Amino acid sequence: MRQPAMTAAEVKDYLIEVFPQTAHLFEIDEIAPMRARVRMLTGPEHLRPGGTVSGPTLFTLADCAFYVVTLAMIGRVALTVTTNCSINFMRKPAPGALVCEARILKLGKLLSVGDATIWSEGASEPAAHAALTYAIPPRRGENVG
């Protein structure tokens, strides 16, 4: 099985370098081949009326976790971008820590396809599930035609 190109610490350092405005929101708990676990601590700014974590916050976590696993596998390619995301909100997550398990189902030269599942920390059933596709830019000198 293909091994990650970057460790959790290397990905975190890279996120701080390329996204200093948001990198502090996320902790990378684990990187494994084609998988990552990312944690986000939510606060009052992430809540919607009724005291539940907002949909945009869940989307942000799913998107970031999939970016993390993709970078872990391909290395420092900052211009890797989301091209598709479909998210299902299944349960109201409790305020506090959220955990996202992201996995790549197919990794090609130009696309990373997979999913991300989010739980409130300690919950047994997921709060949300997303299917994601990322575009990977061609590397310099690589003929994609």
Results as ranks from 00 to 15, higher is better:
T60W: 02
D63L: 06
R76E: 14
G145F: 13
A36H: 12
W119P: 06
P93Q: 04
L105V: 07
A65M: 07
S86T: 11
R91Q: 00
K92C: 03
V18L: 02
A78T: 08
G114T: 07
V68W: 15
Y14D: 14
S120E: 01
A102P: 14
T60I: 00
A72L: 02
L98Q: 10
G43Q: 11
L47A: 01
A32I: 09
A102C: 11
E125P: 00
G43E: 13
V53F: 02
G141K: 09
A32F: 06
L107H: 01
V113A: 12
E121V: 03
M34S: 12
I31R: 13
V113G: 08
A102H: 13
Y67E: 08
N88A: 15
S112G: 15
E121Q: 10
E45S: 10
G51V: 04
E142D: 15
L79Q: 11
P126R: 02
L98I: 06
T52D: 12
R91N: 00
L105N: 13
L111G: 09
E17T: 14
L132I: 14
T42F: 09
L25K: 12
P4D: 12
W119D: 08
L110F: 15
R139N: 11
L110K: 15
M40A: 13
L79Y: 04
T82E: 03
G50M: 04
E17C: 04
L15H: 14
F19N: 14
R103A: 06
I74F: 14
G50S: 04
V18R: 05
M6P: 10
R48D: 06
S120A: 05
P93N: 02
A23S: 15
K106T: 04
G114N: 09
G75N: 10
I87Q: 03
R140H: 10
S120L: 00
G108I: 01
G75A: 13
H129R: 14
P126V: 00
A116E: 03
G145W: 08
P137I: 08
V81K: 04
R39F: 07
K92P: 04
E121K: 02
H46M: 14
S86P: 01
R140L: 12
D29H: 14
H24V: 07
D29K: 15
V113E: 12
D63R: 04
I16Q: 13
L132P: 09
F66C: 05
E27H: 08
